[in-house]
């Protein structure tokens, strides 16, 4: 008889942990974005689920499939995860139909994280557009948490959406706005009745406010067109490519660098990203 390979169990990276939706928040007026609070069915799942801001998870709706979604909660918030999901295709639609109590699957956390250590002791400028606030929110919550706030200097948040109805995390925006250690600017593209905040595209608002680039890291996420102009504006404001951090999106399946689809040049966004500095982007092929 042949000698069997030593008996053993190989961790299977494709199998999700079972989780339950405990709370659903409608974010936008059009109801195309919802935030899901999720808890693992088995508490022990936390033992190997340690995440940092910037990472994402593959969220399963059994029978429909999986989609990569940024973890929008922060590791400082214990006992649950949050995902904000825009309804676009199969999985995201199925998620939108899910009510509290529904069972889903989570595998991860995947991807790299925001360069938190490089940000310590610096001013942080967050620039978000639309649902792009989701990955930023994890870092904002982390930075503003009592445990970590002292590690960072001034925090400024510029956030914009097409209209007031498209703003996400309004409850959070209110809370951030009330803090005196945060400078919050919320803008919508065009004036609206009843809106007394700022109007104009995010890059324009950014240029008007012209935040200091000295000792500052800018973190931005949003639709590609916004990112393009934000990068230009930041450069004009004197930010070097190393001072600008963004997160990228590519179609994904495995999340672990095997299925071969999320690459930009030799970088796999699921493994080497999704967080990249502008310096790195400049060195990568324009294929995203």
């Amino acid at each position: 008889m042949v000698q069997k390979i030593a008996r053993g169990l190989t961790k299977n990276p494709y199998v999700p942990k079972l989780a339950r939706i405990t709370d659903v928040t409608q974010e936008t007026e059009a109801n195309d974005v919802k935030t899901f609070r999720v808890e693992f069915c088995d508490e022990s799942a936390w033992e190997d689920f340690h995440y940092k801001p910037g990472q994402f998870a593959e969220v399963s709706v059994f029978g429909v499939g999986e989609a990569p979604i940024s973890i929008t909660s922060a590791p400082t918030q214990k006992g649950y995860l949050e995902f904000s999901v825009k309804r676009l295709g199969q999985v995201t639609n199925a998620l939108h139909y899910a009510a509290p109590g529904s069972q889903i699957g989570i595998r991860g956390p995947y991807g790299n994280t925001f360069p938190i250590d490089d940000m310590r002791g610096k001013n942080i400028l967050f620039i978000g557009g639309g649902i792009g606030l989701a990955p930023l929110r994890s870092l904002i919550t982390y930075v503003l948490s009592p445990e970590h706030r002292d590690g960072f200097r001034d925090v400024r948040i510029i956030y914009g959406a097409r209209s007031s109805g498209d703003l996400v995390f309004k409850y959070e925006l209110d809370a951030w706005g009330r803090r005196d250690d945060v400078e919050l600017v919320v803008t919508i593209d065009h004036p609206e009745d009843g809106w007394d905040g700022r109007c104009g595209f995010v890059p324009a608002v950014l240029k008007e406010d012209a935040p200091e680039s000295e000792n500052t890291i800018a973190v931005t996420c949003g639709p590609p067109i916004m990112i393009k102009f934000v990068l230009q504006a930041l450069t004009e404001l004197g930010f070097s490519p190393d001072q600008i951090v963004t997160t990228l999106e590519m179609r994904m399946k495995c999340g672990i660098g095997m299925c071969g689809r999320c690459n930009i040049g030799s970088k796999y966004v699921c493994r080497d990203g999704p967080v990249f500095t502008f310096r790195q982007l400049l060195e990568m092929p324009r294929e995203y």
Partner: peptide
Amino acid sequence: HCFDIGDEETNDYGERVRNWDSC
């Protein structure tokens, strides 16, 4: 080695499957 992952479902029984895919 590129592949796709998806779900196949019949009568409440589902399988998570992977199939070859191509760039």
